[in-house]
Write a protein that binds this DNA or RNA. Structure first.
Lengths: 359, 359
DNA sequence: AGCGAAATTTGAATCGATCCAACAAAAATG
DNA sequence: CATTTTTGTTGGATCGATTCAAATTTCGCT
């Protein structure tokens, strides 16, 4: 009975091996972590004992406490974990992060949570040396929680903005201008905007005051870019409908319904993400409208799927992989400084945009 | 302000807080882990001191050692980390794993390594409660390394086979038969096989002896399925060329070159993965051969991309997401038993297969 | 054999928490 | 007021390793 219990009891520790082999913990430890400094004879004896007793090797839990470094970075989001594998933008970003981690041999821990309480707990208990945060919805809460850990972290500014933390983002104003200019030059004069969220959870048409008081400056800046450029073409931007969505099917389709319910439909749609742009193309096509003959669509992000959809998407490409790489490196070779980087964007013209229809 | 000092000083420990607040470390610990059992007055005082001293909250490193459980599962592979985000099969699998982890609030740690040494180290030092292993190339080494950790683990049998460990796989023989029967019924009589690897790293044509001595029984079983079925149609399977690839562009294209270099080209290709099948379709198309008019192609896996490529891919679908879910659950509610599950597969007919050309 | 240098080994201290039996104080009960 | 109960607090033990100064052994050489 007792032996049975003992058998189940608990894993063998390094100390057990040391005792059984008749050496000190120190030596036993060295056998595994720095074998070259132990006399061959002793080393073999300890190893034999370990093997025989079924020792699983030094437990990383113990080592960790002593060593202090985990050698892994956490990637956090408020979306469910599957977001990392399903969302095209996240995937490209993760590929960049992976690259940097592979290069230094670091691991990646994915942190997310179904609800707020678990989110807090998961952030608080993540075994990582630092975080890369996908600041989408609920970004500020995620940042707050992470800040409390007092570990290095970088925010990927997908619409969230806070000067006091490290972050990598893109030049949203320039991106907005690029997209707008492209369409204006094609002769378009009637526009609609599918916008990312400006503040707390809500969807629907946006008023100018809401734009001014936007929490998410990324969204605000893209809008500003669109409008500055369109104004320079003499277009009255106050009449352009802006529909705020949650960057998914439902609210985007609702937005399109709303936009096209009005009197004069737009000839060009400025979408703040490729995802929305692709949903828009699908919606328009099934509605019998031709892209780009009837309506032009320009996206934002530059995800690979955009090149494959039908018609291929004109978009403002971010250097997503590079952003991921840099974010990971910021954590991996962290030096205590707050760094803010703004990356350039690029207009990629494909087939979803064309000359404005003559009306 | 204080950030400069904070940068230098070593992090504040729970014991520091306890001392500063004039309570025992036991009480201080309770303030954070079971606040309800501490008198409100004391609790607030300790919290205030913690706040003021800039305490980051209980360090998970310390907690971990005591608690023993990490609440995360490791997902291991010998491919680079980006494999998880780029390979379509892996992505769907990870989505399933994510789902199960999300449901229980567990985290995911991605484990991989550029080289063998680092692989060993990364497996040995991964802070996880168990592993799910993608046993692709080098699967047996991965399994060996993981076995030494003496933690629960499940192998996803992508070609690797070992009766002594827990694993989830699919019925490869049935899958092979389904694919072969479909083509045979369409009248095809000349076949070629794009095979996954049978043993150590190599590519090229395969001989019957090599098949018999295959290390990766998953590959062997698919082949067996193909051949059993074709034999039952009276087809001489000994003349079917089998080209072993590494499931990527280069070796797959090389295989196609080799196969079509011979005298009578096949009218049907049996590919052991959707990836190879899609590469084959691309290769055939750019070579001026029509799919399926000239050559039919059937894949294996059932990844979503297969439905989107041109022409959409006929394939043997595995319940990939479900496999992922089950694998994760096996680790999450591990009971010490060795479990082996074999999932069914399903023929999905799309447009990449058609009647054999009249020749 | 004797001596110093080099190679090994030792064992206590440490990493940062949680747990729990024992104790103390406050509240409820007779 | 004495006695239970209830509630809150304490401090030592523990989780499983690594580290390092000091002690010991081994070795080379005269």
């Amino acid at each position: 009975m007792a032996s049975l219990l003992e058998g189940q009891a608990r894993p063998i520790r390094l100390a057990d091996i040391a005792k059984a082999a008749g050496v000190s913990h120190g030596t036993a430890s060295n056998v595994f972590s720095r074998p070259e400094i132990v006399r061959a004879e002793v080393r073999e004896r300890v190893k034999a004992v370990a093997e025989q007793m079924g020792y699983a090797g030094p437990d990383p839990k113990g080592r960790l406490l002593r060593a202090g470094k985990v050698n892994a970075i956490g990637v956090g989001t408020t979306e469910p974990l599957s977001y990392f594998f399903e969302d095209p933008f996240a995937r490209v970003m993760m590929a960049g992060i992976s690259e940097a981690c592979d290069a230094t041999g670091a691991g990646i821990a994915l942190v997310s949570a179904a609800n707020q309480e678990k989110l807090a707990w998961n952030i608080q208990s993540a075994l990582v040396d630092g975080f890369v945060l996908f600041c989408i919805e609920g970004g500020s809460r995620l940042v707050e929680l992470t800040r409390e850990r007092r570990l290095p972290f970088v925010a990927l500014e997908l619409g969230f903005h806070d000067e006091t933390i490290s972050a990598i983002g893109v030049d949203n104003i320039a991106g907005g201008r690029l997209a707008a200019r492209h369409l204006a030059e094609l002769g378009h004069r009637r526009f609609a905007v599918l916008s990312l969220t400006l503040g707390e959870d809500r969807t629907g048409f946006v008023t100018p005051e809401m734009v001014r008081s936007a929490v998410y400056t990324g969204t605000r800046d893209r809008l500003a870019g669109y409008f500055e450029e369109l104004s320079s073409f003499g277009i009255d931007t106050t009449r352009i409908p802006i529909f705020e969505t949650e960057n998914e099917e439902k609210s985007t389709r609702a937005g399109l319904e709303a936009i096209f319910a009005g009197g004069k439909p737009p000839s060009a749609i400025l979408a703040m993400s490729d995802r929305m742009a692709m949903i828009a193309i699908d919606w328009l096509t099934t509605r019998g409208l031709k892209v780009p003959q009837d309506v032009s669509v320009v996206g934002f992000d530059g995800v690979p799927d955009g090149a494959l959809c039908d018609p291929p998407l004109t978009t403002i490409a971010q250097p997503i992989t590079e952003i991921g790489r840099r974010a990971a490196r910021m954590i991996l070779d962290h030096d205590g400084a707050v760094r803010r980087e703004t990356m350039g964007v690029e207009l990629i013209v494909r087939a979803s945009t064309g000359p404005a229809p003559k009306a």
